[in-house]
């Protein structure tokens, strides 16, 4: 067993530098690596390019990094929940690359899978396709998109073991499972870090080979963005 365990977020993120490109997992505020984001805030790393489906809300998730102007460029598909983000973008302070969600996922997956580029129909005929190669296959038009190149991928899982194997819960698999292994160094934070042998190999979502460092998060707020419920009769 190759042991990937580190003590905490501080140790896991010790070599993150200013101006690097970082993938951050999760969807909305669900399944985000809360402890690693807190550590990026604490270290005051600046000039970051962040690849993440969303940009958090004003006071949680990547919104915490935006508040402190630590992000130079944001690559995301949907940023509608963050007023500070919208302000920085419209004023030109923040460089933003909006990418169709499926393309964003596939650009991560391509990096994870060692594929430099692929063709997708998403965005053909729109401003997303401007300046990109397009090609016809079987009578339909496609846009060429390239794999991301990131220094770090930071993901969050439900359970992990010291070998770096990961299991996700519910809909938090989303971008966490496609970013694991898609950066030069993948850091996984988990709610529960178990010794090797504790997880059933049949149930592993991401094998440990993709994970360089793993730690158990100190605490999880797990904030809910849109609490929708129905009344009990």
């Amino acid at each position: 067993m190759i042991n990937k365990k580190v003590a905490n977020a501080q140790e896991a993120l010790h070599d993150v530098q200013d101006n690097q490109t970082i993938m951050v997992g999760g969807f909305g505020l669900s399944g985000i690596p809360e402890n690693s984001i807190a550590e990026l805030v604490r270290k005051n790393i600046t000039g970051l390019t962040c690849i993440s489906n969303n940009a958090g809300v004003d006071d949680f998730g990547l919104g915490l990094l935006l508040q402190k102007r630590q992000i130079k460029k944001m690559i995301a598909s949907y940023v509608g929940e963050n007023a500070e983000f919208e302000r920085q973008m419209l004023s030109g302070e923040l460089d933003v690359e909006l990418t169709p969600q499926g393309t964003l996922a596939e650009k991560c997956r391509a990096a994870q899978a060692g594929i430099p580029a692929f063709f997708t129909p998403a965005g053909y005929g729109t401003e997303v396709a401007e300046g990109k190669e397009t090609r016809e296959f079987n009578g339909k038009m496609y846009v060429m998109e390239e794999a991301y190149q990131a220094d770090f991928a930071i993901v969050k899982a439900w359970k992990g073991d010291e070998a770096g194997n990961l299991i996700f819960k519910g809909t938090t698999r989303s971008f966490n499972a496609v970013m694991a292994g898609a950066g030069k160094i993948t850091i996984a934070e988990v709610e529960e870090l178990l010794p090797v042998g504790a997880l059933d190999p049949n149930q592993i979502h991401i094998p440990g080979i993709y994970v360089k460092r793993i730690f158990q998060g100190e605490k999880y707020e797990k904030r809910i963005e849109q609490r929708t419920v129905r009344k009990r009769d």
Binding site: F27, G28, L29, S30, G31, E81, W158, K169, G170, T171, T172, K222, R223, I224, E225, Q226, R227, T228, V229, R230, K231, R232
Partner: peptide, 17 residues
Amino acid sequence: PFEGDEDADLINAGKQT
């Protein structure tokens, strides 16, 4: 979900529980 059964790890694309 019923009130009280919301799970932060279970949402739709609109971020609703």
